[in-house]
């Protein structure tokens, strides 16, 4: 939180006060308010979708044996290993052809597709640690499969869901490349793109950029600080049941 001048003269000098002008420069220079809304909408919807699909698929792949389930799991794993660079150009073309480019749903779709393998993999690993007897007992009690999912798997999966939710949130929130490819027009950009463009070609204004990064990191940090308690509680709850 220094001025650029301080930074060049002595990068480690401890400055006496937090410099608000760095923060307000960062905030005002690129219309961060608009970007924040974009990020908020896209990331919230993406993470919720990811958690819903991830927990369902994780339940199905870990506890329900159906034909092709292991093939499906392997397919999911393979999806995990696709570097974004391989699919970037074809994806841009498909999205442009389907008019999804430059829309919220387009970017949401890309985020969900990109991070779903990770989410499914984690939920599957987690749910495999739950003894099948619990599910069998619930089924004997007359629960439908959906009932088991809602009454047993969702509550039991809370620690994993919260953890993977935080990570998905972090990935989507901090992503720059996918958002750049998918959101070409200026008013649709996300917060991290705005922050990244504070850096400039020669990275010569580190203090302003750092301020931008810190502002952008606050929401994720707050969510984490709020949720880690819940995770810890969930851990305690889970271990008594196990």
């Amino acid at each position: 939180m220094k001025t650029r001048r301080d930074y060049i003269l002595d990068r480690f000098s401890v400055t006496d006060a937090l410099r608000w002008e760095n923060i307000s420069t960062a905030w005002n220079s690129v219309g961060m308010g608009r970007y924040f809304v974009n990020s908020f909408v896209v990331v919230t919807v993406s993470v919720l979708l990811l958690l819903l699909l991830g927990s369902m698929a994780g339940f199905a792949l870990s506890q329900l044996r159906f034909r092709g389930s292991s093939a499906l799991f392997l397919g999911c794993l393979a999806g995990l290993f696709i570097p974004f660079q391989v699919i970037m150009v074809p994806l841009a073309r498909i999205m442009a052809d389907t008019a999804l480019i430059d829309t919220y749903p387009g970017l949401i779709l890309v985020y969900v597709a990109q991070f779903l393998p990770f989410t499914v993999f984690l939920m599957t690993s987690y749910y495999r640690g739950i003894p099948p007897e619990i599910i069998d007992a619930a089924r004997i009690d007359g629960n439908t499969v959906y009932g088991v999912y809602r009454r047993i798997m969702l509550p039991l999966g809370t620690p994993a869901l919260l953890s993977v939710g935080i990570l998905d949130l972090l990935f989507c929130w901090n992503d720059v490349l996918m958002a750049l490819v998918m959101m070409p027009s200026a008013e649709n950009r996300t917060l991290m793109i705005g922050v990244t463009s504070l850096r400039g070609q020669y990275s010569d204004n580190i203090p302003t950029f750092a301020s931008g990064v810190l502002i952008a990191a606050i929401p994720v940090l707050l969510v984490y600080l709020f949720l880690q308690r819940q995770i810890a509680d969930g851990v305690a709850a889970g271990s008594t049941k196990g």
Partner: peptide, 16 residues
């Protein structure tokens, strides 16, 4: 930190 979060969730399945 990310792996740490995953590990913490994993402890939920640990038999105390």
């Amino acid at each position: 930190g990310m792996s740490l979060v995953v590990f913490l969730a994993g402890f939920a399945t640990l038999d105390a």
